[in-house]
Write a protein that binds this DNA or RNA. Structure first.
Lengths: 202, 202
DNA sequence: ATAGGTAGTGAGTAATTACTATCTTTGAGG
DNA sequence: CCTCAAAGATAGTAATTACTCACTACCTAT
């Protein structure tokens, strides 16, 4: 059986493109992800990409959409089966950590987009994701206060900033150490500290 | 009085270049800091830069050196006059926050360097800075344990990761909100949480 | 089987970027 | 005041990058 070139449908190719970008981001600097690099990885010429996306920004936008959907879905699922607000917060955290372990390029791409000064569509999507993320956190904090697991005096904005920072710190640390899988092992220790910082006195 | 072009000495020009890059990073995506952009801001042609630096990487390397020296010096000074380990930790934190408020481009440049896959000299310097930074933190934690301000059971690595993440989170948050000066106002609330997370039970 | 639309190719282009070679201007020391 | 080395200007180059366009291979519906 000789390998023959196959034509994929537009939808299949779009999906494949997004996944390729996510994979590439795990291996190299997001800034180095050129349209040529994406096409090469897909075994396709560079021009072919522009059949399915009107611009590179459109590709990145699709990637951000992919990330938003998957990440939020996993976090929502994790929190929904938690028995208490504090457990939900921990579940959301661990869901995020596992997502990063599976897709190490994601936090790097997100950060890259947020750094931009031009108002690209991909950047807007990244900001929206962060905002939705913050809303979800805010709801968990409110629940926690109502149920007495968190002190009513808790500074919710600070708690959200620290939560996001905790994840960023873990992502960066494991990236520097060159072993992103190990983020799963470092995560519980850091969360234990975080928990102490927001928990109501017993 | 007609403005006449003036020739600066090599040393003056080098210093001016570094400060220009730090300033530019506060305003735009570090990726967009081209040699042309640097030269334009200095009121000089692009080629002139290469009289004083052998390559762009050499410029970035000098910037990282500048950052390392200033940041560590300020942190060392702040911690040296603190009355206790916990106060020293807080002083180091606030010194870092003030440094970022004055030079908002610095965390962005650092992160940009760390993202690189090529082994540039600037990247090596950035990693070294983080390592030295971690050592300083480790010493403060050890002191804190010895003096009973921190529990002996404290996970030092987790505490360091959370510390760095806290700063990253604040830097990103304030960058997104577009008002980096306000990082000074949000910082104390976040540190209060951090303190709770590492402090020994009273 | 064939026609027609779509996926993909190949070979471009213009813009950008780090870097260089050659010439000119400046200013400090003799 | 003159000289000369160093600072800077001017005008390049080669490489890279996103994007385009004319053409070809493939697949599906009739």
């Amino acid at each position: 059986m000789i390998a023959r070139p196959t034509y994929l449908s537009a939808e299949e190719r779009r999906e494949m493109t997004v996944e390729t970008v996510v994979d590439l981001a795990a291996e190299q600097n997001p800034a180095d992800i050129t349209t040529d690099a994406i096409a090469k990885r897909m075994g396709v010429t560079q021009g072919a990409l522009f059949r399915h996306f009107s611009s590179k920004d459109a590709i990145l936008q699709a990637v951000m959409e992919w990330v938003s959907e998957r990440l939020l879905a996993r976090i929502d699922k994790a929190t929904s089966i938690a028995a208490s607000p504090l457990e939900a917060i921990e579940a959301a955290f661990m869901a995020h950590i596992h997502f990063i372990a599976e897709h190490p390029g994601v936090p790097r791409m997100l950060f890259e987009e947020l750094q931009r000064t031009e108002q690209t569509l991909a950047k807007r999507m990244a900001r929206t994701l962060l905002q939705v993320y913050g809303d979800r956190l805010g709801r968990l904090f409110m629940d926690g206060k109502r149920r007495g697991q968190l002190p009513a005096s808790l500074d919710e904005k600070a708690a959200a900033t620290l939560f996001v920072g905790m994840i960023q710190g873990l992502a960066m640390q494991s990236h520097i150490e060159g072993d992103v899988k190990r983020i799963r092992e470092s995560a519980p220790g850091v969360f234990a500290l975080y928990r102490r910082s927001i928990e109501a006195a017993k």
